[in-house]
Amino acid sequence: MELTLKGEVYRLSKLSVFEQLKVARKLLPVLAGMLTDFQTIREKMHASEGGKLIETLAPKIADAVAGLSDQDVDAILFPCLQVVSRQHMKAWVPVCRQGEMAFDDLDLSVMLQLVARVVADSLGNFLQELPTSVTPSPITA
């Protein structure tokens, strides 16, 4: 997937299944309260408005991420940013490699939008299949 943010073109890939699991483990406790909001907003939006969904959820995700430890934040951000490349001249340059950012001009807003897009693209199917509420099954003797 390619997108343009603040005049720069980015190419996003999906996380590997193992990275998806690692990121999901850190995000699920945070996102649990937002799943209902996510599904409600997604149902109201047309499929072509995926970008608006991310823009709508980005502030909620940012607030939730603010409560995480630095180690948990790193465990979410770095794997997501490592699957993002930015067009630079005529080449695609990885935004992040081994915890090092390649571009000094990448601001927090763009970084969080990129991470949110990677999470939505890589974990979207998994997250939409989670129940919004769990009803205990009756105990039978």
Rank of each mutant, 00 (worst) to 15 (best):
H46E: 15
Q82K: 09
T4C: 04
D63S: 09
F78S: 07
S137G: 10
Q87M: 07
V17N: 10
K60F: 06
F126D: 09
V118T: 06
A47L: 11
S109E: 09
C80V: 01
L127Q: 06
W92L: 13
P131V: 14
M111Q: 14
L21Y: 08
T132R: 04
V23Y: 01
L35P: 01
A58V: 12
L130F: 11
V134C: 05
R25T: 08
S13F: 06
M1W: 08
L114H: 00
V84C: 11
L28R: 03
Q87S: 03
K60P: 00
Q39N: 09
E49H: 15
S16Q: 06
Q113W: 10
D37I: 01
V23E: 03
H46S: 15
L123V: 14
C80L: 03
P79D: 03
L35K: 03
S109P: 00
A64G: 15
E19H: 06
A64K: 14
R86E: 02
F18S: 12
A66V: 07
V118H: 06
P94V: 09
G51I: 03
Q82S: 15
Q71G: 10
P59C: 05
L68I: 11
G67M: 08
Q20M: 13
K6E: 12
T135F: 09
V17Y: 10
D105V: 09
F18H: 15
L3F: 09
P138F: 05
L3M: 13
E2T: 14
E2K: 15
V65A: 11
T140P: 03
V115A: 10
T40V: 15
P59G: 03
L31R: 00
L127E: 09
L108F: 13
R86T: 01
E100I: 10
Q87F: 02
M89K: 07
Q98W: 01
K6H: 06
I61M: 09
Q20I: 02
L53V: 11
E8Q: 15
